Amino acid sequence: MIDCRSKLAQAHRVVVKIGSSSLAYGTGKPNLTRLESLVRQLSDLHNRGLEVILVTSGAVGLGLSRLGFTRRPRNIPEKQAAAAVGQGLLMHLYEKLFAEYGITVGQVLLTREDFTHRSRFLNARNTLYTMLSLAIIPVINENDTVAVDEIKLGDNDTLAAMVASAIDADLLIILSDIDGLYTANPQTDPNACLISEVTEITPELERQAGGAGSRFGTGGMITKLSAARLAMHSGMPMVLAAAACDNVLRRIIGGENVGTIFWPCSKLENKKRWIAYGSAVHGALHVDAGAAEAITHHGKSLLPSGITAVQGEFELGNTVSIIDPGGKELARGIVNYSSREVRLIMGRKTGEIERILGYKDFDEVVHRNNLALL
């Protein structure tokens, strides 16, 4: 058992994500008592000199309530309309509450594309760094009014982890309506036990993860495990706890045993972190056992001789998944050849590339420097 929660008090840059179910009652109306409590805690952390970034859900839920919906519509335009209404309501609440403590906040709306395109990713990161340098608390949400894919996913947990990774945060805190990760669903299994800490996300843990929670929220435990995996590979701990817990942020930063903590593992460098979790995947390369062994255990690049199949269509510079013989994704990487070219040279030696294609720009289909193990 690791007993290092006291180290959380050393965190300087903290990303806090608040879920929809923590911001609103079952009626869809905002839970003002909860909001006031969380804003007060965030403001106190800010006053202590910490850099605080807030990732918030709730725009669609508040919009649905204002528009009179009793449940989430399945129609995408209606969801976008609700987001357009709710985003203004949500930001107005945050501005009003933070202003009572003399703190300036700024709205940042992001989509997955802001992370999949490298230049946009760097621009977003620079904007966040500048806001922090000006003592502004960024209030981040998905741009649900235009991001159809993001609305389908409803994955602000992963968005929070991406933001935390992008700005090299020291700690990610995800606040939800559940007080941590359990061995089973505590709502249906009376024998479910809270897991205090996690050092590795295993297939067993993933099987224990359930579906979406409240009717106004779309995230579930599986999205929180995905966020935890990204945080762990970014070298930062993540704490999953209940927003309703008294002084939850102060207690987490103070090192108390609150919720479930996911401890970091080996840290990927920034570029490989982006390849693994930020870039869009355009296809897949299936490899044989020898190539899988060389990539996983010997730090080798992927050569055409080890490729057994090509899936999807992609171009030079796109990111692809690398799949082992058992069908498991073992890595992601940026390709040096298009899918058409790889289909022609797969299974062949590097010395044959020029004869087959008429040219050879690279020996490797994916160079080790552009490959991130998962």
Rank of each mutant, 00 (worst) to 15 (best):
I2L: 14
K7D: 11
Y25Q: 08
N31F: 09
L32M: 05
L38S: 09
L42T: 06
L42P: 01
D44T: 08
N47I: 11
L50W: 07
L54R: 02
T56R: 04
G63A: 09
L67F: 10
N75C: 09
I76E: 07
Q80I: 14
G86V: 02
Q87I: 10
Q87V: 14
L89Q: 11
L89C: 03
E100R: 15
Q107H: 03
E113T: 07
S119Q: 11
S119Y: 07
R120K: 15
L122V: 12
L128N: 03
L128D: 10
T130L: 05
M131G: 02
A147G: 14
A147E: 06
E150P: 04
L153D: 09
L159K: 02
S165F: 05
D168R: 07
L172W: 13
Y182H: 14
N191I: 03
C193A: 15
P203G: 10
G213I: 12
M221A: 09
K224G: 05
A227E: 02
A228P: 08
L230I: 08
G235E: 10
G255R: 03
T260R: 06
Y277C: 12
G278Y: 14
V281R: 07
D288V: 13
A289P: 02
G290M: 11
G290L: 13
H298L: 14
G299M: 11
G306M: 05
A309S: 13
G312N: 13
E313A: 04
E315D: 15
T319D: 06
V320E: 11
I322P: 10
A331L: 12
A331Y: 12
S338H: 01
E341F: 01
V342K: 07
K349W: 02
Y359I: 05
E364K: 07
L374W: 14
